[in-house]
């Protein structure tokens, strides 16, 4: 069974190693300060207590007033997993976060996908281009304020 790190233990251990890095935590999740994210990730990967060598999933959610980037990590040797979250882009302005591609190659396409569909910029990603949509596509479709083609027709007709 893969054991999940409890939020408080993880937060405590991270806070011990890197000061002022944890913003908040609850039963499962730990919210990390975006400025310290890369540092924390490096520690999570390399510290002998964690050894999170597998980046399962990297995704993001649009919470209207901010964006959240979610990292799911697994340690193969400990058979344990944890969830790290990061709040970025308050008031929807210029959301950006450090890329972890230098630590986990697996972040490559997932970060590009998030940039393409959600519009969060990953600083340090060597090839941050659109992946699913074509260059010049207007907007980022997974954002909640994105107006789809159908919706745009409905609103334009309603306006007439």
């Amino acid at each position: 069974m893969i054991k999940e790190w409890r939020g408080n233990f993880l937060a405590k251990k991270i806070e011990l190693k890197i000061k002022n890095s944890v913003e908040k935590f609850d039963e499962k999740n730990v919210w990390i300060n975006p400025q310290k994210l890369h540092e924390v990730c490096k520690m999570l990967k390399e510290d002998s207590l964690f050894e999170f060598d597998l980046l399962n999933s990297l995704t993001s959610v649009d919470y209207i007033d901010h964006f959240e980037v979610i990292y799911h990590f697994t340690s193969i040797s400990y058979s344990s997993s944890c969830i790290i979250k990061c709040k970025v882009g308050y008031s929807r302005k210029n959301p950006q976060i450090d890329s972890v591609i230098d630590l986990w190659r697996g972040a490559d396409y997932q970060e590009r996908e998030i940039w393409d569909l959600m519009g969060i910029k990953f600083i340090g990603h060597p090839n941050l281009k659109r992946i699913m949509l074509w260059d010049g596509f207007p907007g980022h479709p997974l954002r909640k304020d994105f107006v789809t083609y159908d919706q745009s027709i409905v609103t334009s007709r309603g306006g007439e």
Partner: peptide, 15 residues
């Protein structure tokens, strides 16, 4: 509110 798929086919192409 949001669904995300961790698609193995895409990620296996990383290398």
């Amino acid at each position: 509110y949001r669904m995300h798929v961790r698609a193995p086919s895409l990620i296996n192409l990383t290398l």
